[in-house]
Design a protein around this nucleic acid. Structure first.
Lengths: 251, 251
DNA sequence: CAAACACTTCGGCGAAGATCGTAGTGTTTT
DNA sequence: AAAACACTACGATCTTCGCCGAAGTGTTTG
């Protein structure tokens, strides 16, 4: 089931200026008639009628007949959320988008997410552990295999503590990478281990993490991933990323 | 500044099947080349090149030159969020959307939002207070006028308590109505008053509120709004809604 | 019952834009 | 240096779709 064509269908619907004007006018939850919407969107009533029929058929608008006129409103808060998403992207010009990454390049590389690690590094670690069958990741849960238990034992990471009082292992969708990293007791243990062994350290009082030279070496040795941030030398899709992609396909 | 045309521009970009396929393929944070994206979206490389240029110019994609090939990825998490919004609306067929309201009709009418009221009723109350110049509502704050002070005094609502320790009055965007209702000490005082005087009562252990017959009468007398839920008799845009619209225009 | 109103359907016009073939630039490989 | 490769620019074709005039259905008002 490919999602591409489906979202194109909805987006194309919103992609017409007249229809977009109608939806914008309804964003605040108002209930408007076809004629009002025609005027607000700047088209003739006949044209508006066609547009409104399409929007209703697609389930974007809810329709209520009342006498000789028809009242329209957004079909659900989900539609409003979608429109908000479009507004945000539309208002931030092409310029802003870049700064978001530029300034946040360090954050994107490695950071904390509550009590565990996130960012490129964390996703690469999760990919590796899945690829090696040390961990089985599900949609909303995870499981440590026997091999994985041995692996962590060998590292000197104690996973037993606190395993009763909290979720042991679960995926957590990475904010910047949009792919899962490890949370739960396992994720927390990994971060603690990394901090204890000076693989990473907190930067100022931000959530960003600095990967130390020791960390770069040990991350490569332990997980086979490139721990250095993408500076001049190594920029773009690094080894850990392409490997990560293969792992994702297997999940 | 009309937002309609702007969101139409972005939506139209996503509205083409080929481009939508590209964006879908990048949803998981991967970094792909122009050729890969051309193949995935099912068009010739020349066509893909044009699409990718448009998406980059609009700030939806980030581009990285690397040797003789170009790597693309989503420009920011905001873009991913927008696409998610579209996916949700696209996957829930027209059928699902209705159920969301039908089941939640009571919630939509009146409910609690933390310690204050929300829903149609709460928005109508806020509109009325603004319309009467009892309260001045700003983007992110609110202010009680002298007239408003007298009004609440007359009702027997004591607004003085706890006014120091928390935000006194602020707007809170209503989940279902997508227009502000009152939060802060003022909002909390109104809910407490309504509960104390049996205008409304909690339903089971949900957040929904039931408007009692007393409440219907008193809401009409106090705020001039229709407090009864829209059953058979009174369905669709009731008096309180059209009045609310006028108030919004004045804010 | 007739007129006004709100809305829909139909049909032709016209513009926007998606597509790919051909030809070009810049980069890597042999 | 030549060939292969990744991508871009241009131009012609073609489909799609928004648009409004004219005419038609159902509802309310006088």
């Amino acid at each position: 089931m490919d999602t591409g064509p489906k979202i194109a269908q909805v987006a194309a619907l919103v992609g017409d200026p007249a229809r977009a004007n109608m939806l914008s006018a309804l964003m605040d939850g108002r209930t408007l008639t076809a004629t009002e919407l025609a005027y607000l969107s700047g088209v003739a009533p006949q044209t508006a009628s066609g547009h409104l029929a399409k929007l209703s058929d697609a389930g974007l608008l809810a329709l209520e007949r009342r006498g000789r006129r028809r009242y329209f409103r957004l079909a659900s808060p989900l539609v409003a959320r979608m429109l908000e998403g479009l507004m945000v992207v539309a208002q931030e010009g092409p310029a802003r988008q870049r700064n978001l990454w530029r300034g946040g390049e360090t954050l994107r590389h490695a950071r904390t997410c509550y009590d565990h690690m996130a960012g490129r590094i964390a996703v690469a670690i999760a990919d590796r552990l899945v690829q090696q069958s040390f961990i089985l990741l599900d949609e909303d849960g995870g499981q440590l295999t026997d091999a994985g238990q041995s692996f962590f034992d060998g590292l000197g990471v104690d996973l037993c503590l606190a395993s009763k009082r909290r979720v042991f292992c679960r995926p957590c969708l990475d904010w910047s990478e949009r792919r899962p990293h490890l949370a739960g007791a396992v994720g927390a243990a990994i971060l603690r281990h990394a901090l204890d062994h000076a693989w990473v350290e907190h930067i100022r009082d931000s959530r960003a993490l600095l990967v130390t030279p020791v960390g770069v070496r040990e991350l490569a040795a332990t997980f086979g991933i490139e721990g250095a941030p993408p500076t001049d030398a190594c920029k773009g899709p690094v080894a850990s990323l392409s490997r990560g992609r293969a792992a994702v396909n297997s999940v």
